[in-house]
């Protein structure tokens, strides 16, 4: 446990000591600022709609494809190449602590990044349009959970190679896949369902079953049905936490497999 925090603290401070991180931060802040302004203009000053759009709109999901990939590339693949991962993995901390520490650092960084939305909210409050604070904070909490999920996916993809660029690419593809699950599944189902069944009634039943399975993995849907609306739903929190733990578990196993692969 202590090891986790020691690693997380170093990784987080290490992130902020590297110019790479600051460049990412600046780019995201700049683009988000532009988007926020345009939303404010489009909605004619609607505080709730503007905040919701800038915190949970398409731009957020686009960042979710790129940022976790870049972070996990830095935290896993680059360290694996420079040898510092060997240092960490021979230090008296468990693999789980290393994985968890790196995960916490990357998620913490993204949490900090998304708290820029809270700054927007404070500014709106100051300017005379008080946002619905509990709902805004709930949504912010949700964005952190989503970030965690995508960081854990990115880290798992990153452990499979020590070539940073390849790792970033793999992470990006994995995160994209996770977002695109419902669209992909719909296409696949359109082909598969007629093959597996004969009657229209069976098709409908099968399509519905598969649809519910796919919907249960759709992060966008889970997010939009709870945090995005300003609702804390225990089932949705558990959804994100369990998938994060699952991917972190696989990441730890993947790192352990390195000890066998060499």
């Amino acid at each position: 446990m202590i090891g986790t925090f020691v690693v997380a603290r170093r990784e987080l401070s290490g992130l902020f000591m590297a110019p790479f991180t600051w460049i990412v931060l600046l780019v995201v802040l700049f683009i988000n600022g532009l988007l926020f302004s345009s939303f404010l203009y489009q909605t004619q000053g609607n505080v709730t709609a503007t905040l919701s759009e800038s915190m949970t709109g398409p731009s957020f999901w686009l960042w979710m494809i790129f940022l976790p990939a870049l972070l996990s590339m830095r935290l896993v693949a680059e360290e694996s190449r420079s040898g510092t991962l060997e240092y960490l993995l021979t230090a008296p901390v468990s693999d789980a602590a290393v994985v968890l520490g790196k995960f916490l650092a990357a998620t913490g960084f993204l949490a900090l990044l998304w708290s820029s939305s809270l700054i927007y909210a404070v500014t709106l409050d100051y300017a005379g349009g008080p946002p619905d604070w509990p709902a805004v904070i709930g949504t912010w909490f949700g964005t952190i959970l989503v970030s965690g999920l995508f960081v854990s996916i990115g880290m798992l993809a990153s452990t499979s190679t020590s070539t940073p660029l390849l790792a970033a690419f793999l992470s990006m593809v994995s995160c994209l896949m996770w977002i695109a699950i419902p669209f992909l599944a719909a296409n696949i189902m359109a082909y598969l369902v007629p093959l597996l069944t004969s009657t229209a009634a069976e098709q409908a039943v099968l399509a519905e079953r598969m649809g519910s399975v796919v919907a249960s993995m759709d992060a966008l849907r889970h997010f939009s049905r709870s945090f995005q609306m300003g609702v804390l739903d225990t089932a949705e929190i558990v959804f994100f936490l369990t998938w994060i733990s699952f991917f972190l578990f696989l990441t730890a196993r993947s790192i352990e497999a390195r000890r066998w692969r060499g």
């Binding site: 020691v6 290490g14 000591m17 590297a18 510092t84 240092y87």
Partner: peptide, 29 residues
């Protein structure tokens, strides 16, 4: 791991840290 000092061939040190910080990190670990 607690009772050995191990220096890999690549001398893995975090380039962005100061020497003292690197030492403190090792101490915390």
């Amino acid at each position: 791991r607690r009772s050995i000092g191990y220096l890999p061939e690549s001398v893995p040190l975090y380039p962005e840290l100061r020497v003292e910080e690197m030492m403190r990190f090792q101490g915390r670990l």
